[in-house]
Simulated assay, not measured.
Amino acid sequence: MKFINIVGNTASGKTTFSRQLAQTLKLTRIEMDDLFWLDNWQETPDDEFVLKLQHKMDTAKEGWVLDGNYSRTWALKLIKLDTMIWLDYSFSLNFYRSVKRAISRAISQEALWKSSNNRESFRRSFLSQESIILWMIKHHAKNRKKYLNMMQNPAYQHIQFVRLTSPKQAAEFLKQVGAM
């Protein structure tokens, strides 16, 4: 376990989990949202995004923990990826966490990533087509189907898939990794 991708739906805890795992394994953590989002919620064009990610991956010689899904980066990740950890939590838990997080971030106005000025607002979180909550609702079942299919696909048999279905399982996994 040296080249790892943490995936899961919105508000599943990918960032927290990847931070803890990278620290435990002494690997570089790469937050893909930080590479993707530009100021004022502008998206980095795909070719630039892939180049940014490639650079970060190349400089992490000892290994990396990627935080994020981003299907557009799959071909690049697949070159070295040896482990995919899927935080596959229930719809109700992801929905609850999405709403709680959106409210907290809209109140605090904390910057979401180091490389951009983006902040959540009540309007963006709850009343717009760009709502992260709406995105979670639309993609929860699609993501589950996608990752289940990947786990069963012989083309990816060289990747160790770890499916964690609760925060308790995730905490136990981190504890086991720390004991190794």
Rank of each mutant, 00 (worst) to 15 (best):
D34S: 15
T83H: 09
S18E: 09
W37P: 05
S116D: 11
I137F: 11
V50Y: 05
S12I: 02
Y96N: 01
D67M: 06
I137P: 09
T59A: 14
Q23G: 11
M84I: 15
D67V: 09
D67R: 01
K175P: 00
N117G: 11
V7Q: 06
Q54K: 15
S166F: 10
Y70V: 13
N5V: 14
N153E: 05
N143G: 05
A179D: 11
D67L: 05
Y147E: 03
E43H: 11
K100M: 09
G178S: 13
Y70M: 13
V177D: 04
G8E: 10
I103L: 15
E48D: 12
S125Q: 02
T24F: 03
Y96R: 07
K52T: 01
A75G: 00
L93G: 09
E62G: 08
M136T: 05
S98P: 05
D33C: 05
S12P: 02
L81T: 01
K14G: 10
L21G: 08
N153G: 03
V177A: 12
K114G: 08
M180L: 13
K80R: 12
K56Y: 08
D58C: 06
S116P: 08
K61C: 07
A171C: 00
K145N: 04
R144P: 00
M32N: 00
W37G: 03
N143F: 13
G63K: 05
F126T: 01
M136P: 06
